[in-house]
């Protein structure tokens, strides 16, 4: 019972850090997926006096992924009741060209500003509509959400590290006596600290496998999948290979650093 309690204190602390990291990864992926969705639905309208080729427009800014000329037919349709076909053709030629420009990703307000300036630098383009007020609000909302989650994850990690340091003091007290006695009989440092490192590694493995089970369950939960489908994004919630490697790496690093701090801080007392 006492031994389980000894393991639990570090396992729970490690688990909360691993949980924060994985939640942060999920939120980051969700935001990126959502930004991709937004980028697909977002476009800039440019008005040009002359016809521009796709190549002309793509060379203006790297962010532009495609440009499509808009047909003036819908505008003319409203006027054409009293006009002759010849006049309609003349009007079509004299009208400016409208281009719908789609982008490779959802840009920041700064990038939108630069794109607008780059487009207007072209002598043929007279007007650019970038729908900046709508775009900025969505972008800031995304940034705010990401910042809140990052801060929350950081706070959890800091509080947990403080808890781990407290645990470290208890470990130091518990292991000092045994390490001292082993030292009296000439045990090398690696042998004196072997039990400590074994314990730390076992706790890291337990915490990692618990995290693996929790996130495998979450990632296959119909309720969670439904929530993601509601907001129209499709992401990998938990990648059993990549994410588990990150989780295991973090847990082992923290535990080994913790054990090393105890070994470094150990002073022989007789």
């Amino acid at each position: 019972m006492k031994s389980i309690k000894n393991h639990l204190s570090l396992v729970i602390a490690l688990l909360s850090i691993l949980f924060s990291i994985q939640v942060f990864l999920i939120v980051d992926r969700s935001i990126n997926a959502y930004k991709e969705n937004l980028a697909n639905n977002y476009s800039v309208i440019a008005v040009s006096q002359k016809r521009l080729t796709n190549h002309n427009i793509l060379s203006i800014n790297k962010i532009i992924s495609n440009a499509e000329e808009l047909s003036p037919d819908s505008v003319i349709k409203r006027l054409n009741s009293d006009m002759q076909n010849k006049n309609i053709e003349l009007l079509k030629l004299s009208l400016p060209k409208f281009y719908k420009i789609t982008l490779s990703y959802y840009p920041s307000p700064k990038e939108i500003g630069k794109l607008t300036a780059d487009l207007l630098r072209n002598s043929s383009i007279t007007k650019v509509e970038n729908f900046s007020s709508n775009h900025n609000t969505t972008y800031k909302l995304l940034l705010l959400f990401k910042s809140v989650v990052t801060i929350f994850a950081l706070v959890v990690i800091i509080v947990t590290i403080l808890l781990i340091f407290k645990e470290l003091k208890i470990w130091q007290y518990k292991h000092n006596e045994r390490m001292n006695i082993m030292g009296l009989f000439g045990a090398a440092l690696w042998l004196r600290s072997a039990v400590l490192f074994r314990l730390a590694i076992v706790d890291a493995l337990i915490a990692s496998f618990l995290a693996l089970c929790i996130f495998l369950y979450i990632s296959s939960s119909p309720w969670v999948l439904q929530q993601f489908s509601y907001i129209g994004i499709n992401i990998v919630i938990f990648n059993p290979l990549e994410d588990f490697a990150i989780i295991l790496g973090v847990a082992l690093s923290i535990s080994v650093v913790l054990a090393s701090l105890i070994v470094v801080g150990h002073k022989e007392e007789v």
Binding site: N180, I181, G183, L184, G186, A187
Partner: peptide, 16 residues
């Protein structure tokens, strides 16, 4: 020092 201690036996009042 570790090497030397491997050839010494120590007994304490508080057993250790």
């Amino acid at each position: 020092l570790n090497f030397l201690r491997r050839h010494i036996g120590i007994v304490f009042q508080d057993y250790k």
